[in-house]
Structures are given as C-alpha cells and as structure tokens.
Design a protein around this nucleic acid. Structure first.
Ligand SMILES: [Mn+2]
Ligand SMILES: [Mn+2]
Ligand SMILES: [Zn+2]
Ligand SMILES: [Zn+2]
Lengths: 137, 137
DNA sequence: GGGTAATTGCAAATGGTTTGCAATTAGATG
DNA sequence: CATCTAATTGCAAACCATTTGCAATTACCC
C-alpha cells in the first residue's frame, strides 16, 4: 500500500519530500483515524522541524487523489484515514471519539461483530450515501 | 411534533421565548438539513433582530435534549435536522451539499429507492455506529 | 552540479463556533 | 395585574481548526 500511494503521487507529478514520507508513515502505522493535530504530533516525534501547514497541505493532496478519507465525529475536528483496499466502517465512541475500524460491510454482520468482538455498545447509527444529485450530475 | 418538542423543553424548565419559537418553526418547515447560518437567515426573515449566538445556543439545547441531530457533510460546517419520529437516512450531494431525506432504513431498500425515486447517483457511502466503547461505558 | 517549478515554514487571515457580561424577558407568585 | 428572579438574549470579543500569502528551500529532470 505504502508503495501504491507513493507511486500514485509520483505519477501525478508530486515530489516525494521527507515531510510527505513521514506523514504517510504515520498514517500507515496507526490503527485509528487521526486528526491533523495528532498527525502533526506523531510526525514531530520523527522530525521536530515540521509545520502543521504542511500536514494540512499534504492531507489536501491525498484527499483530492482519493488516497485519504475525511471523517467527522461531531467535535469540530476532522479525522483522516489512509486508503485501504478493504472497504470498511467504524464504531465511534461518543465520549472519547475513538474510532474502531470494523471489517467487512453488510449491516447485520456488523451489528453482531460489534456486540461480540469489539465490545462496543450501540446506541444508534448513521448511514449516509455520497454521490451527485440530479442538478449536479 | 411541534407540540412534542415544546412540551419537552417546557418540562425541562426552558422558557419558550419568541426566538426559540421562530427557530423551531424554521426547523420544522424545511425539507433539508440547515446550517446555523441558514437557520439564522430564515429566522431573520421572520424577525430581523435575532442574533446568531442565540441560534447556536438553541441548537445546543436541542441537541442535548435529543430534539435535533448534528450532521456533517465535510465542509467545515454542520447541518442540523429537527427530530422526527421516523428514523431515516440521507443522500448528500458532493457538490452542493444538499441533503435529501430518504424514508425507512434497510440498506438494500435504500439503494433501490435512491436510484428509482430520488434520482441520485451513488458513488459511495459511509456508515457509522454511535455508542460507547468499553472504557467509556 | 545547475536550473526551475514544486514545496516548505512562518505569520497572518479566515470563518464557524463559543464565551463573558450587562441588559432584557418569561413566567411563577401573590 | 404588578412584582420578582432566574433564564435568556444581543453584542463584542475570544477561540481554534483550517487556509492563505510569500519568501526561502528543496526535489528532481537535464
Ligand atoms: Mn460500506
Ligand atoms: Mn438507520
Ligand atoms: Zn471511548
Ligand atoms: Zn447537488
């Protein structure tokens, strides 16, 4: 995957800078979704001379090229998740906003998995479809 | 529904001010989800002397009392939807961010409805469960 | 290694949302 | 109906995640 993303970027004419390498490394070595600030902190652990702006600009590039997903949890701060080849969903804790990645997709499968494996108490869910309406198509 | 919400608020000790009446009226007379700014504009059409702050504070109360839902579409601005007794989902246009309310819930039913009735081209979807994780339960 | 366009860091701007505070008001009480 | 008080409001300022302008730096094609 690491390779795939780097190739995608190179192919589109983006330079593979040290900052971008570090950001990708951080995004690929986490098991949750990270906020810009969290990515920033983790990248600083590798090299303290990075700038938050660079994080945001890299995020923008990745999203525009379908290599990163922007996720909202309702606390005025987005989380980002690097592209995986397995389509999946999340369980979001209303209190600490932690996002637990779930495998697979069909809803009923999920409900069972969440209760049995992840130990997450469901109080509700939200399902949104993305695409284009009649006027914008 | 109008009545139900007012009763809920009164029961919890909130005053039924003119501002709150107008905000509820606006929220109940729309067929999409509105941003705070949009609610503000619509309320100003009724009475120009209202303040955006009041919109936000009312939104906060409604959300805390489960009378309003906060929805994110990815453009740094939340949309709000007044409580309905029919659980339902949305189709969000990636371009204009318009939210089309869908009836019912099961996924397969939706996919058909979206294609046939609402004329919305699906390019993807997101499903999130809300609740509490092991530590926060 | 040199040339050039892309990228970066810094500081400042942006914009949605929140907060402090004094003035106003709903609605309970008599 | 007039009085009282806690809740609510409007205004201005703060907040804070994200974005932008610009000069200095860097990747990478030759
Ligand atoms: Mn899915
Ligand atoms: Mn549902
Ligand atoms: Zn939690
Ligand atoms: Zn549209």
């Amino acid at each position: 995957m690491q390779k795939f993303i780097k190739n995608q970027l190179k192919q589109k004419g983006f330079k593979m800078t040290n900052q971008r390498k570090m950001i990708l490394q951080v995004l690929e070595n986490t098991d949750t979704c990270l906020s810009a600030e969290e990515i920033f902190m983790l990248v600083k652990d590798i090299n303290p001379s990075v700038c938050l702006t660079t994080i945001y600009r890299t995020i923008e590039i990745l999203i525009k090229n379908n290599l990163l997903t922007k996720i909202d949890v309702g606390d005025n701060r987005y989380r980002y998740e690097i592209r995986t080849n397995k389509h999946h969903h999340h369980a979001v804790c209303l209190k600490c906003k932690k996002m637990i990645c779930l495998e697979g997709c069909p809803m009923d499968y999920f409900e069972k998995q969440i209760k049995d494996k992840v130990n997450f108490t469901i109080t509700g869910h939200r399902l949104e479809f993305y695409g284009y309406c009649l006027e914008c198509k």
